[in-house]
């Protein structure tokens, strides 16, 4: 699919401007100016018409952050290390790639006896406790105070840990960019990973993320997490619908509200590389965090064990000395 500046995208740009003006008057749009509050987004997917205006706006706003790899790529060792090169597939918009951080996932489902197309804008969920950030061994995936997570491609080694620990496998790799080129280009690392950063520069300036601003159907709303969650519940109640993203992975900053159960949507959408699922997700950080308390108890147990041993030893010696003295008597 072409991503060039077509008449279609020009029209969408005009619609975007209109939508931006309209958005400022919509009660559901909450100001995103406070940078210390966790911000969440609400997506009413019953409204999404799948026009891809958000997808194009994302590229227009974030295109300057897309990878610009050096070629030829360093020869990888061992040879089985996969080269991920999207430079000839920059126009792909039907999945997530390093050059496409948002796409529309489509499901055909039965709604009140009618076959209906449901369109779901998919991108990073911006988890409340993001494993991609917390488990990155180089600190290149970062979380901001306002809850958004992003990957700094300049210090990313491209090891894929962020993708492997992500329950939705969101980040996408491009070989030939990033820090590994200056460290051990053949032996360690393999490019850099890219994903939605929720337009962090725009949000820092009090603007809306491009995908929200441009949407002609006002599918998305952004604001403080607690307020947005309340809105999600209200909306779900109104449409007798379902919420995805509230409990998933211990909670995310993206709430999808749908008139159709998410297991039905999950069964209908295409799932695969760059195409995330809609399944329930357990809190991936919980298992380790739950045993962390033992790290406080363990030193106390160590001290108690050594003190007990010392007490036992001195008592044994006292008894032994006492016994010897008695023998002498």
């Amino acid at each position: 699919m072409s991503k060039g500046l077509s008449r279609r995208s020009f029209l969408r740009g005009s619609m975007a401007a209109g939508a931006a003006i309209a958005a400022s008057t919509i009660p559901g749009v909450v100001s995103a100016r406070d940078d210390s509050t966790q911000l969440a987004t609400l997506l009413d997917i019953s409204k999404c018409i799948g026009c891809e205006a958000c997808v194009e706006a994302c590229e227009e706003v974030n295109g300057h952050k897309y990878p610009n790899p050096q070629k030829p790529f360093p020869k990888m060792f061992p040879p089985r290390v996969p080269v991920a090169d999207w430079t000839d597939k920059k126009d792909v918009t039907d999945r997530l790639t390093p050059y496409n951080w948002l796409y529309i996932q489509r499901a055909i489902v039965d709604v009140n006896g009618e076959e209906t197309e449901i369109n779901i804008p998919r991108r990073c969920m911006h988890c409340v406790n993001p494993p991609c950030v917390k488990l990155c061994p180089f600190g290149s995936a970062q979380q901001q105070d306002n809850g958004l997570s992003r990957i700094d491609p300049d210090i990313c080694m491209g090891g894929a840990k962020c993708k492997l620990v992500c329950p939705w496998k969101i980040p996408e790799r491009q070989t030939g960019v990033g820090m590994y080129l200056d460290v051990l280009p053949s032996l360690a690392g393999n490019g850099a990973f890219y994903k939605c950063d929720r337009c962090y520069e725009r949000v820092a300036q009090g603007e809306l993320p491009a995908c929200i601003e441009v949407c002609p159907e006002d599918v998305q709303t952004i604001g403080p997490r607690d307020e947005i969650l309340k809105e999600a519940h209200t909306l779900a109640k109104e449409m007798n619908g379902y919420i995805y993203g509230k409990e998933e992975n211990g909670g995310t900053n993206t709430f999808y509200v749908s008139p159709v159960p998410f297991d039905k949507l999950n069964a209908s959408v295409d799932i695969g590389p760059g195409m995330p699922h809609l399944k329930p997700v357990k809190d991936t950080m919980a298992d380790a965090n739950n045993i962390a308390a033992a790290m406080v108890i363990a030193p106390l147990a160590g001290v108690a064990a050594a003190a007990g041993k010392f007490y036992k030893l001195t008592r044994t010696e006292d008894v032994s000395k006492g016994g010897t003295q008695n023998d002498k008597k």
């Binding site: 488990l135 298992d287 045993i291 033992a294 790290m295 160590g302 050594a306």
Partner: peptide, 30 residues
């Protein structure tokens, strides 16, 4: 599996913290 090694690292760290606390206290007392 990063989650398994992460969990294992925590478990080993718990044993290690208990062990070094034991050895330090043992040295100071005995």
């Amino acid at each position: 599996d990063f989650y398994i090694t992460h969990y294992l690292h925590y478990l080993a760290a718990i044993v290690f913290l208990g062990f070094i606390s034991y050895k330090i206290t043992d040295y100071l007392l005995a």
